[in-house]
Design a protein around this nucleic acid. Structure first.
Lengths: 129, 129
DNA sequence: CCAGCACTGCTAGAAAATTAGCACCCCGCT
DNA sequence: AGCGGGGTGCTAATTTTCTAGCAGTGCTGG
């Protein structure tokens, strides 16, 4: 019951999981704020309960209120999301995706980030990946 | 009516749009094949009609059957998808996302791709982005 | 000519998602 | 002790999504 079932989420469920992943952890009110055209408090509450039942979230009590936390660690979720985008839009090519990222208008990377990236690429190359 | 309304898609709608984007263009049957636990032909047909009404797709007749084509060009859709992932999982940082891409187990880039990427990075740096 | 096949359009109904409402609980304050 | 505010659980009902069914169309081969 606590294992996150690999099933597709509904629209709202997706929105809520996204909100929580961007925040890391969140209370009902915080999630609600992030939703487009915020539904009622209890609507959100209900969805959170469902997500918890499905095993995507767990909660802790904090200051007498619940804080919801993803059961799937952010890194895994990230990877899954990236792979999905790769598959659907880049024919699975990570290189293609990276190229697209570099093309973003508002990239704004710092010099340091450029250096780190260049280094990461060289490292990946050496490791033959 | 022909403008894609920026509203969130339902689960199935999303699946279908994804299928079409990976294929570029697709017939009903082709879309259907790609869906998990393929629903009936007419179920798919109905969803396609809805997506068309909402302005996400258009169709052409080809060999007496419809070929569905996204109204939003792949590049835009890609960018939107990437930005979404950036926002939700990487605090908006493209550098973070690229780093994560480079960490993928099964990266398998060719030497040429490494070169191209390195070059792209240098170019972006020069262009001050 | 008409049977079979592969499509399409449309619609009603089932199923799932989403919502609000209401009862309860705990805590701080007067 | 008795509010009031801000939480929570649960449930019923609405709304949306999703589906299958059926009728119509065009083409192809016997």
């Amino acid at each position: 019951m606590t294992e996150p079932v690999a099933q597709q989420l509904s629209r709202r469920e997706r929105q809520i999981m996204d909100a929580i992943y961007t925040l890391g952890r969140a209370t009902v009110a915080e999630v609600r704020e992030r939703l487009p055209e915020p539904p009622s408090y209890s609507a959100v509450r209900a969805l959170l309960r469902i997500l918890e039942e499905k095993g995507h979230l767990r909660h802790e009590s904090e200051d007498n209120r619940y804080v919801f936390i993803p059961t799937v660690p952010a890194e895994s979720a990230r990877e899954t999301a990236l792979r999905h985008v790769l598959r659907t839009f880049f024919a699975g090519s990570a290189a293609g995706a990276m190229a697209a990222l570099l093309e973003l208008e508002d990239l704004e990377l710092s010099d340091e980030e450029y250096d780190r990236l260049a280094a990461a690429i060289e490292q990946a190359r050496r490791e033959g990946r």
